[in-house]
Write a protein that binds this DNA or RNA. Structure first.
Lengths: 223, 223
DNA sequence: CGACTTGTTGACACTGCTCAAGATACGTGG
DNA sequence: CCACGTATCTTGAGCAGTGTCAACAAGTCG
């Protein structure tokens, strides 16, 4: 698969630009290799050489880092269509794991490097993906200075939006994943979600299934 | 290029370390327009159209956002050599202000768009600058889940490194700026810094001048 | 059905915030 | 150069929100 010519890469990338939010990015996946990962399987490790770029096809992925005191911080969650593995230098800052059984497209960065050198559109696509990730990282940092209630509200609203649904959605990740993403404990996440259920803001048919009942109440907490 | 030669630019630099670290990026500044901003002057506003890209020549710049509850969150600090104003779309996510009297090179993004289309090297530079900013944003997010002590230690070490000095440096920003960057109150920043002084980890000839006495003590707190 | 993982709830401790006052540094005009 | 007013920084006391530790409940898989 990696023997695909760079011309093919360019064709895929240029023909699909700007169809939908992720349409252009799917061009990347189309020239990659589909890989399946089981729940909790490692896709790449912290400090490992960043040889590939990835795009989620199905399932969900999380990136994380273990801090000096042993705590785990989630860098981001990636859902179908999302690109991950972009790094400043040639080594990963975070480890990446499949949250549930997932399919991920991977493509060698080397192919991009060769192609992007003479393909302005491909360059722009990669730059654009990086800027999108930058915006997400900045938003993540903003989240971490809010109160527990505000963090959870913002998280639920974001997951709702990314799910493409309007009212209810399934969380692929555990409470522990959410806690490590929001920089709080699993107990506080649980208590906060329960409080939203108690006051009727959301309903919880099951722990992983969220039904938003009062969108306005959550939005009022979202900065 | 430009009425302002790179020699003039270099003369304005307060830190040679910043120059070498970002030497490649100075190609960008050399084709821009030098602008002077007074202390606390706004360089661009939140939600404003992102018409220019900027590089600090001398002084220091902060970006910030006002949250729903009125609190201010600092996005990042920029020192001589640093590029700022990169955005995912065409609107700024943060406002930018001069921390002290500063000189900033600005260049119209339109010029980049035209040039980058046929200049692979320039494309790479811009992409690289974005990836560098992404890495900084991710590191910032990690900071915000640490204890007050750890945040301040990490902040001081980072400012030391960026200053290009090995032991002592001047902080261009106020305690309030630091507090809003680290997601804590000015009182806690002050208390934490004082505690470091009390236990001999640092010395404080003045509030804005930091002397690192025990590098190891700070590094032990830095994840 | 039983073992294990994941999620919920409770009691208490502690970090960092709030509110308040005082100290120091800084800029400006006389 | 000094005096005053203002902005910045430090320090203190009490409190609120979140973490810690522990027990229990629910869900999941073999």
């Amino acid at each position: 698969m990696h023997t695909l010519s760079s011309i093919t890469v360019a064709q895929h990338l240029t023909s699909r630009a700007a169809l939908s939010r992720h349409a252009d990015a799917f061009g990347i996946a189309n020239v990659g290799t589909p890989m399946r990962y089981a729940r909790n399987a490692e896709i790449y490790g912290d400090e490992e050489e960043a040889e590939y770029l990835y795009q989620v096809v199905s399932g969900a992925v999380r990136t994380h880092k273990i801090l000096a005191d042993g705590r785990r911080q989630i860098g981001d969650f990636y859902l179908p269509g999302d690109i991950f593995g972009l790094e400043f230098d040639d080594h990963h800052e975070f480890s990446a794991e499949a949250i549930c059984n997932s399919t991920v497209m991977s493509i060698k960065r080397q192919v991009f490097r060769e192609t992007a050198g003479h393909d302005a559109r491909l360059s722009r696509e990669l730059w654009s993906a990086t800027k999108r990730q930058l915006k997400r990282a900045e938003k993540h940092a903003l989240l971490l200075v809010l109160t527990a209630q505000e963090r959870v509200a913002a998280f639920l609203l974001e997951m709702l939006e990314r799910s493409g649904k309007t009212d209810s959605f399934e969380l692929p990740m555990s409470r522990q994943d959410i806690a490590d993403y929001l920089g709080m404990t699993i107990e506080t996440v649980s208590r906060t979600v329960t409080a939203f259920e108690t006051d009727g803001t959301i309903a919880l048919p099951s722990a992983r299934c969220i039904v938003i009942r009062k969108h306005q109440a959550l939005r009022a907490l979202d900065s």
